[in-house]
């Protein structure tokens, strides 16, 4: 497993436990007590570390390569998943994965950023950074869901929209603007979950939802801490300070009223227990949808629009 800097003491202890287990395989020395003692120490350390992660540490956790991605949630939670492709204008963008499927038995439209999990898939998915065709595909499918009365689930995990010559030439700004407009227009239940990184315009393009959920250690921000540091501090080194100042944690965003619910992660973060994380999000999505499904399309649309028109009328107390 990829070990984050601040997790090193924990990983060293885990290494020791592994070693002891190896030793005991060879002889008949009883080391169960020692292993138990060390395991307790690991748990305690994990609990202590994860109870007070700094915003910068959370940024690392949110970007952890072994954190479950959109593809993992779809594989585990969506039956009959049927991917749909293309924006009908220019191309197919694999940075955004989307399609029809069933969540707990009922048809839904699922749309999410996919970062990929190894070199090949990361390249194929462009590291989760979408081009205009990705947002235009999302828009097309949100409209389709609205047309058929199907709830929309979006999973956000992106460093941001792709900054490239081709993306600009094809209207990145317009594609994002239209995607936001469609998010706010559809007449069906719409739930979004920030599952890792919610990076700027590329994130809000999929996240103007009735219910916005965030995994406990995910982040959501107007700019990356590194980008903010290089502009305001004129030094990439200050990313740690920028992460503090930006209030990008689920806990701060909940206080600001931008996020409606925080989804708990297992002890030590989503990457330590992917299965439990996926089930935790599943329960939260189910609860959120349960509240929205009985409402009429007009009410859902109005509720969403009323919520976002109020954003920023109050700050942190």
């Amino acid at each position: 497993m990829h070990v984050l800097d601040f997790e090193k003491p924990i990983s060293e202890l885990e290494g020791k436990i592994e070693e002891l287990r190896h030793l005991s395989d060879g002889g008949d020395v009883n080391i169960a007590d020692e292993v138990g003692r060390l395991q307790a120490k690991v748990d305690k350390l994990l609990r202590q570390t994860y109870a007070k992660l700094t915003p910068w540490q959370k940024t690392q956790v949110a970007r952890h390569p072994e954190r479950p991605h959109t593809a993992d949630y779809i594989a585990a939670l969506i039956t009959d998943f049927t991917p749909l492709a293309g924006d009908r204008c220019f191309g197919e963008d694999r940075a955004i994965m989307a399609g029809l499927g069933r969540f707990r038995g009922a048809s839904v439209m699922v749309i999410g950023n996919e970062k990929g999990h190894d070199t090949d898939s990361r390249l194929a998915h462009n590291f989760g950074m979408a081009r205009p065709e990705g947002y235009r595909k999302a828009r097309r499918l949100m409209d389709m869901a609205s047309h058929f009365g199907l709830p929309v689930l979006t999973l956000v995990d992106t460093a941001g929209a792709y900054p490239g010559i081709d993306a600009e030439a094809r209207g990145q700004a317009e594609a994002i603007a239209r995607s936001i407009e469609t998010c706010l227009d559809i007449r069906v239940p719409f739930v979004t979950a920030i599952i890792g990184e919610g990076g700027s315009g590329g994130a809000i393009a999929l996240a103007a939802a009735n219910t916005v959920l965030m995994l406990e250690h995910s982040i959501y921000s107007v700019i990356s801490p590194e980008g903010c540091a290089s502009i305001l501090w004129r030094s990439g080194e200050a990313a740690r300070d920028a992460a503090e100042a930006l209030r990008l944690t689920a806990q701060d965003l909940h206080k600001l009223g931008v996020v409606d619910g925080i989804v708990p992660e297992p002890l030590g973060g989503a990457h330590r227990n992917r299965e439990q994380t996926i089930q935790s999000l599943s329960a939260a999505l189910d609860a959120a949808l349960g509240e929205l499904v009985p409402q009429s399309g007009g009410v859902l649309r109005a509720q969403r629009r009323d919520k976002f028109i109020e954003m920023g009328r109050s700050g942190l107390a």
Binding site: A177, A203, I204, V258, G312
Partner: peptide, 20 residues
């Protein structure tokens, strides 16, 4: 405006509703 963090990002959705 970076100094208003996520609330600046939310203005993108907010202004979209307004002009709509």
């Amino acid at each position: 405006r970076m100094q208003e963090g996520i609330l600046s990002l939310m203005q993108m959705a907010r202004t979209t509703v307004a002009v709509d």
